[in-house]
């Protein structure tokens, strides 16, 4: 592997200054994805800036009843936090469904947002990949794609985003905070990940030289009745082939508010706003849940081997919303 430098940052401004000075630098959080990619040669940074010591490891309840989550909070700490579990249970469940205990102890919130796809062509430097080498081609479209995107993909890339946490964050309108040499900024998660288009190598709208400092979760009373369900090819330690974060507020059999986000179907966590619109104000019934899923999935463009995800997501929407309806009735 390429020889690289290593610097440990102790404050946010120091980290941002180091980042500004070395265009080929990468920020090192838990290293659970970046280090693997360095070993295989997918990532070849000149410098690692270790941000694990930055004072961004707190979870705080905001005045309006939301949460502020620091970028270096570990996945384990996030999932175990009582306020997260009480206010946004689907977020804790999503985080716990990912990786293993050891990895969650290392992985950070900031790194989780920026983790790369596990597409087998992306992770193999010998294969062509538009995400790694723009213009090289996407062999997944004609090749192995049974866990690739059905929504929002393009002819340039059909990879899916691997994060579970991000799916719950999408459902709860999280806002990403960052710092650059020019000062701080914010990006709603809905704008954080860029559409694939013909630039799959450009994954986020973060300005260059930006350091993610944390997340803001606006207050969402609906999130108190929420769940995350993940389907994967083994019981643990695998990325989703389809996942769903759902929150539901039902009153007298009518949907007052609903949040739905799909995982493992697109290049980013997929907020199912069409389905939400179809459901809101209507009956909380299995038929309505299915119709809402169908409305969302009408835009799906399946490849020869991933069409099952349409059925899977539809089934998950019906199953999870039915469970939440029952939970709300208790």
């Amino acid at each position: 592997m390429r020889e690289f430098g290593y610097r440990r940052a102790h404050d946010v401004h120091g980290a941002v200054a180091l980042l500004a000075a070395e265009p080929e630098a990468r920020l090192l959080g838990g290293g659970t994805n970046l280090v693997d990619l360095m070993k295989t040669g997918v990532e070849r940074p000149a410098l690692l800036i270790d941000v694990q010591d930055l004072p961004l490891d707190r979870i705080e309840v905001t005045q309006d009843g939301g949460l502020r989550i620091g970028a270096t909070v570990t996945n384990s700490a996030l999932a175990a936090d009582p306020e997260v579990r009480r206010r946004y249970p689907a977020l804790a469940q999503a985080v716990l469904s990912g990786a293993s205990g050891q990895l969650r102890n290392m992985a950070t919130v900031g790194g989780n947002l920026l983790q790369r796809t596990r597409c087998g062509y992306f992770t193999d430097p010998a294969a062509a990949c538009n995400k790694r080498v723009p213009g090289a081609g996407c062999p997944a479209i004609e090749g192995e794609h049974h866990n690739h995107a059905i929504l929002g993909a393009s002819g340039h890339c059909v990879a899916v985003h691997p994060s579970d946490m991000g799916v719950a964050l999408a459902a709860f309108d999280a806002v990403v905070g960052y710092e650059t040499a020019d000062g701080p900024g914010e990006l709603p998660l809905a704008e954080f990940y860029l559409p694939v288009g013909d630039t799959p190598h450009l994954e986020t709208a973060l300005p260059s030289g930006a350091l993610i400092t944390g997340l803001r979760l606006p207050p969402a009373p609906v999130a108190a009745v929420s769940r995350y369900r993940k389907v994967r090819e083994r019981a643990s330690y695998a990325f989703a082939i389809g996942s769903l974060a759902a929150a539901l507020d039902v009153h007298d059999g009518t949907v007052r508010e609903v949040r739905l986000a799909f995982g493992a179907v697109a290049s980013r966590p997929w907020r199912a706003r069409t389905a939400e619109r179809v459901l809101t104000g209507g009956p909380a019934s299995a038929e309505a849940f299915a119709a809402a899923a169908d409305a969302e999935l009408a835009a799906a463009e399946a490849l020869p081997h991933n069409g099952y995800k349409v059925t899977l997501m539809r089934n998950l929407v019906v199953a999870l919303l039915t469970e939440l309806t029952e939970e709300a009735a208790r």
């Binding site: 087998g120 004609e142 090819e233 643990s236």
Partner: peptide
Amino acid sequence: HEEAVRDRASGAPVGADLAGYHVAAHAD
């Protein structure tokens, strides 16, 4: 779980690591 996938176009294995080639995890 177990299944190695070969890319027809390149002739090479896809996901040739233990993240791509699934064996039963403890939870299975």
